[in-house]
Amino acid sequence: MKRKHIAGIVVAVVVFVLAGAFLAEVLNPYETVANGKNGGTVSSNDVYVLAKIISAEARGESYLGQVAVGSVVVNRVKNANFPNTVYGVVFEPGAFEAVSDGQYYNNASSTSLKAARAAINGWDPTGGALFYWNPAKPVSRWIWSRQIVTQIGRHVFAL
């Protein structure tokens, strides 16, 4: 009797592990690309890359907050201390949480696409900010040494 119980538990555990593995495959963030109904035209790929990073990093923020996040990327591209292209800035290892955790690979929202166009054309609510973070989340200590210039929505922006 006892052996039977143990066997049952072992089978259950193994099934559970396999089911978990199966779910992990299915729910892989890299493959959750939703097929949107609406398309948008973009005049160059960097606008779309910018829209994707805005969409993943500033979900739930107002339009202003989304343009602000886009501005930080654009300001980094213009700054000599960061890579010189949108691609270089977005994919700099560890620079954006959404790239590290794979959320970046989802489709962009239509609002974020508009925000990306505005940011790349120079609309900048942050006044030149190079960093932003959510003060409610744990962030690296040194980042607090940057000079904060404004707060928009949940993010603080800094030079």
Binding site: K37, G39, G40, V42, Y48, S55, N107, L113
Partner: peptide
């Protein structure tokens, strides 16, 4: 010269 246009899927 204007950049070439591409059509992308959007999430919404």
């Amino acid at each position: 010269t204007p950049s070439p246009k591409f059509l992308f899927d959007l999430a919404d």
